[in-house]
Design a protein around this nucleic acid. Structure first.
Length: 838
DNA sequence: ATCCTCCCCTAC
DNA sequence: TAAGGTAGGGGAGGAT
């Protein structure tokens, strides 16, 4: 038990005797083969057997498609791997361990297309029994099956992963807040304080935690402990599976000497090969190299990192909160375009997705990067893996924006610009991604709900919104614990703003799947009670398992998934050229390859989409669902509220959360704003709505007309991104996707006179304003700001003011105030000052 | 020297 | 068939 055990048994934590300064103790908790453990929880017959989680359900075989060349690809990757090493030094067999990725060439010698090859479905996780046979995570199922014909395939179950992850974190959080969430099944905990307070040894704590996890989840976790993160992680390797190990400082030297360098964090395939090329395979060998040499060879930081890590030195703190630095969306599967426009539309969808993600994290970004994967010259047109990207080159381009933005319009405009500059052959595109960097918090969202605006201005709201509830609980917690920051545990890759407590937040993100509420567990064992912290509820962000495993489609809620699949099957041969926009979009990913995914394309209702007059299809990895646990813990009325809000959002394909009511409006106003749209037959249709209801092909002429305006504008602005492309398209009388999509418009109206007449019609023909319309106007105005068309904005606002003052209806006036408020907020954000209307 | 930009590598 | 995503960090090399 060593030092600490002795210490603990000789002195209680409460003792006034000054104990020697306790050594730090870091604990690394890691579930054992997470997906598998969860997947077979309820199948005891699979326990103890070789099991793999994969998409392939069959026998690990597939039919080779014509024109593919798996052998070629395999050779390419082998060669590429060896390139990492310098010529003269021969690299050991170790390499071969990394070359299993492509199927056995013996199976590819076929002459006809009927040849059966091995399944290329990847193994996300495999049991320890499978590992013993040589199967590894990431291996293709086909080959694994050859290795072990007995191998059992188990399908993904993201819901279950999430449940287990929640329980895991709930358990950990009942002991301490000093948690760094590494992933959904893995966490670092600083237990130094607990040891001091309780006098328990790390081993004792680990035993308690592990048994609690096992009991609650029916899955095992292993725990590694050490005086720093590095040692704790190394200890975990030794502990696994279903074990625990404390790597004592005094045994580090002996332990680490024979470890291969690739166990060090930050040492992957490439570094491993590079080190091998200078004759270094183990940490012991690495220790022989002087720091300056390492830094010269691998760069200053990497060199220092290697120098320290191979000696077991690590001073990184357990970071309970991390600031998110980028938001991105990337799809490198199933991408096959035959026409430029398909790629453009795809980019627009991706931009929408980025907007959504930025909204969710409450951020805007200033630097934008477009990344495209292009089939490498000479690579087979169709990769061996169905829908895969095959051998590719990456092409990227970035731009720094004038102002931070979260707007899909601005993003897509810039992205399309970059895309056109790339001048790519779209048929060779195999993957597309957009990233947003240089993030800053965006507080715009706080004002965009008219209903809450009404409430705050009428001060009659009695019920507490879900968000208020969360907010209150967080603030309370923070104060209770003297924390200056949100006590949320920041997930490595899903951290949000970093200071949500300070923001007037109504971020819907807080309702998404990734937040779980942690309550003090009810009954527990005596010894766990002794060390358990008594706390109330806190919130934890849990990254959806789909982030760990990229099976996005699987992660979609079943109903959405169905829709996606239907979209695919219903749409065999889209006739792109002369059909309307909506139709053409379905062809995006289907292009040549009959693929459903790509982006999990989802068709939206269109009409109520203010941001999207055409009725788009949206790229939609929408993982967001309300966590059942959080949900159950809420008061019934709040549950109802949440349900309604969620349903609405869901119906809209979760695309524009700004459009949902928070339902915090007093019952009376709620009826006034909502009823009209839903139940009662509308007597007077909103002109704004009217416009939107028109199906895409009907508004097509408008769009073409509109395109001319854009063209004119572009001639004035030679730097504009799309001019060359534009001319071509308009001469063909096609719809110019990007112009239509990008410019601020109110229900399709772009010209001032059209906007005016639309507004006039709206105010004069409608008795009371509907929230949806108001939001549309807000959006239009803020889009004008984004586009820096302040002149137009000024005219529009003034005109609206005149109109509404004439009406003298208080609701209309309130609507105007609301619109103006939002405009000013955005003005303040972008220009640092508000608009003055004379 | 210190940045910015375009990559690549790594982890999960 | 298959579902190759997301984010952080650092190095090379040019711009300032």
């Amino acid at each position: 038990m060593g030092l600490k055990g002795a210490l603990a048994s000789s002195s209680s934590a409460a003792s006034a005797v000054d104990p020697p300064r306790q050594q730090n103790c870091i604990m690394h908790v890691d579930m054992d083969c997470f997906f598998v453990s969860v997947g077979i929880r309820d199948y005891p017959e699979l326990k103890g057997r070789p099991v793999a989680v994969t998409h392939n359900r069959g026998h690990g075989r597939m039919t080779i498609r014509p024109s593919t060349n798996p052998q070629f690809e395999m050779q390419y990757y082998q060669k590429k791997l060896k390139k990492g090493q310098t010529e003269e030094k021969k690299v050991p067999d170790k390499l071969d361990d990394n070359t299993w990725e492509y199927p056995n060439p013996a199976c590819v010698n076929g002459t006809s297309m009927d040849v059966v090859a091995l399944s290329m479905a990847e193994i996300a996780s495999c049991s320890y029994e499978a590992r013993r046979i040589g199967i590894k995570n990431g291996m293709f199922f086909g080959q694994a099956k050859q290795l072990c014909p007995d191998l059992q395939a188990v399908s993904y179950n993201f819901k279950a992963y999430k449940e287990v992850a929640s329980i895991l974190y709930e358990t950990l959080a009942s002991y301490t807040y000093d948690i760094e969430a590494v992933s959904c099944d893995e966490a670092l905990i600083d237990v130094t304080a607990i040891c001091e307070e309780t006098g328990l040894t790390p081993d004792e704590i680990a035993t308690v935690i592990r048994s609690e996890i096992k009991e609650k989840t029916k899955c095992t976790a292993s725990v590694g402990m050490g005086s720093n993160i590095l040692l704790a992680r190394m200890a975990t390797r030794k502990a696994k599976p279903d074990g625990q190990y404390y790597l004592k400082t005094e045994e580090v030297d002996d332990f680490i000497r024979d470890q291969l360098v690739n166990i060090l964090p930050g040492v992957g395939r490439t570094l491993e090969c590079r080190m091998a090329s200078i004759g270094v395979k183990t940490c012991g060998e690495l220790q022989q190299i002087l720091m300056p040499t390492l830094q010269k060879e691998f760069g200053p930081k990497t060199g220092q990192m290697l120098y320290r890590f191979c000696r077991g030195l690590d001073d990184r703190p357990v970071r309970t909160e991390k600031e998110r630095k980028s938001v991105s969306a990337e799809i490198n599967y199933g991408i096959r375009f035959s026409q430029t426009k398909e790629a453009e539309v795809f980019l627009l969808n991706l931009a929408e997705e980025i907007q959504r993600r930025l909204e969710i994290s409450g951020m805007k970004g200033k630097r934008l990067t477009l990344k495209v994967m292009m089939r490498k010259a000479g690579a087979p047109t169709e990769p061996a893996k169905f829908g895969g990207h095959g051998i590719c080159d990456n092409v990227t381009r970035s731009v720094t924006l004038d102002h931070p933005t979260g707007s899909a319009k601005v993003i897509s405009r810039e992205v399309l610009h970059m895309f056109h500059l790339m001048k790519l052959n779209v048929t060779d595109m195999r993957g597309v991604g957009i990233q947003m960097h240089q993030l800053i918090p965006d507080n715009k969202a706080s004002f965009t709900h008219f209903s809450s605006f009404v409430r705050s201005n009428t001060t009659t709201g009695s019920s507490c919104s879900v968000m208020d509830l969360f907010q209150a609980s967080r603030t309370k917690k923070a104060m209770e614990h003297g924390l200056s920051e949100d006590p949320n545990f920041a997930w490595k890759k899903t951290t949000e703003t970093g200071n949500p407590l300070l923001l007037p937040s109504c971020r819907d993100a807080n309702l998404n799947s990734s937040e779980i509420s942690v309550k003090p567990p009810g009954a527990h064992t005596p010894e766990s009670t002794a060390i358990r912290r008594h706390r109330h509820a806190i919130n934890i962000e849990v990254p959806s398992a789909s982030q760990i495993d990229p099976s996005v489609l699987e992660a979609l809620p079943p109903d959405i998934r169905e829709q996606v699949e239907q979209t695919y099957t219903a749409q065999q041969q889209p006739n792109f050229a002369d059909t309307h926009v909506k139709e053409s979009m379905k062809g995006i990913v289907t292009g040549q390859v009959p693929v459903s995914m790509g982006t999990m394309i989802l068709e939206l209702p269109g009409p109520q989409e203010s941001s999207n007059p055409v009725g788009m299809i949206v790229a939609l990895p929408a993982f967001s669902q309300v966590d059942p646990e959080v949900f159950a813990a809420l008061p019934p009325d709040v549950q109802e509220e949440l349900r309604t809000a969620y349903d609405q959002r869901h119906r809209q394909g979760m695309k524009n959360p700004l459009l949902q009511l928070r339902n915090t409006v007093p019952e009376k106003s709620k009826k006034r704003f909502k009823k009209k749209n839903q139940t009662s037959p509308i007597k007077v249709q909103s002109p704004l709505k009217n416009k939107l209801i028109v199906s895409p092909h009907k508004i097509l002429p408008d769009l073409i007309q509109y395109e001319h305006q854009v063209e004119e504008k572009l001639q004035v602005d030679p730097g504009a991104s799309t001019s060359d492309h534009q001319t071509k398209i308009s001469s063909q009388r096609e719809i110019n996707v990007d112009s239509v999509y990008l410019r601020a418009n109110l229900a399709g109206a772009y010209e001032l006179k059209d906007v005016k007449s639309l507004l006039k019609e709206w105010v004069t023909t409608i008795g009371e304003p509907v929230e949806e319309d108001i939001l549309q106007v807000v959006k239009y105005c803020t889009d004008l700001i984004e586009e820096k068309d302040l002149e137009k904005l000024d005219l529009v606002i003034k005109y609206m003011k005149r109109l509404i003052q004439q009406s003298a209806d208080s609701l209309w006036n309130m609507a105007f105030d609301f619109i103006l408020d939002n405009v000013q907020v955005v003005m303040q954000q972008i220009y640092g000052s508000t608009l003055k209307f004379t």
